[in-house]
Nucleic acid binder design. Sequence first.
DNA 1: TTTCTACTTAGAAGAATTTCTAATTAGAAT
DNA 2: ATTCTAATTAGAAATTCTTCTAAGTAGAAA
Lengths: 94, 94
Amino acid sequence: MAMSDTLKAISDPVRRQILNLLKSESKPAGEIAAQFALTPATVSYHLKLLKQAGLISERREKNFIYYDLNASVFEEVLNWIYSLGIGGDSDDKK
Amino acid sequence: MAMSDTLKAISDPVRRQILNLLKSESKPAGEIAAQFALTPATVSYHLKLLKQAGLISERREKNFIYYDLNASVFEEVLNWIYSLGIGGDSDDKK
DNA sequence: TTTCTACTTAGAAGAATTTCTAATTAGAAT
DNA sequence: ATTCTAATTAGAAATTCTTCTAAGTAGAAA
């Protein structure tokens, strides 16, 4: 739940890709798993870590479990990065 | 050198603390190591990873090795985070 | 040129992470 | 109630990461 968890969560490429997939709209676990050359169990493990970090939330519907992105958790990370002083002026802040 | 390396680098609390220490001014390895309950060898290992990720650079002076922060590497990370859409409007962008 | 200082590299141990298979759960459908 | 579907949990194997001790290196000092 702290910045440490957020950063640990996004240090893995599979988990970043999951967040990318959920950017446009929420998706059920199966649909997410289908995007990877990994077993559903493994993807479920990654979903659990993302959920623990607060980056996604789950919602049951029929017998699917939909996952939603929660990007607001990144605020703390952003503030830390900015506190270090960003040298190269990224143009698009938002 | 890619975002993947940056995120891996900052996923460790020791390495984040090193970046914090270098925020104000560059410091020699020994002075950095002194801040941790770790051997100099271990801190050197963390410095190597940060260097490989491009987050710090080294500079010899006398027989000290000074490390400098290079926060511009964060740009790619920032752009990715913003691409996910930050929910909670952090007020201070810069 | 030997010695000393500041630090790194090598190699190994221990810990944590990622992945799999197999078994289980929760709810929907029959 | 049984079965089927979607997904998770448990447990183990493989890999990666963190840390240490011991040995090495680069340059300064003597």
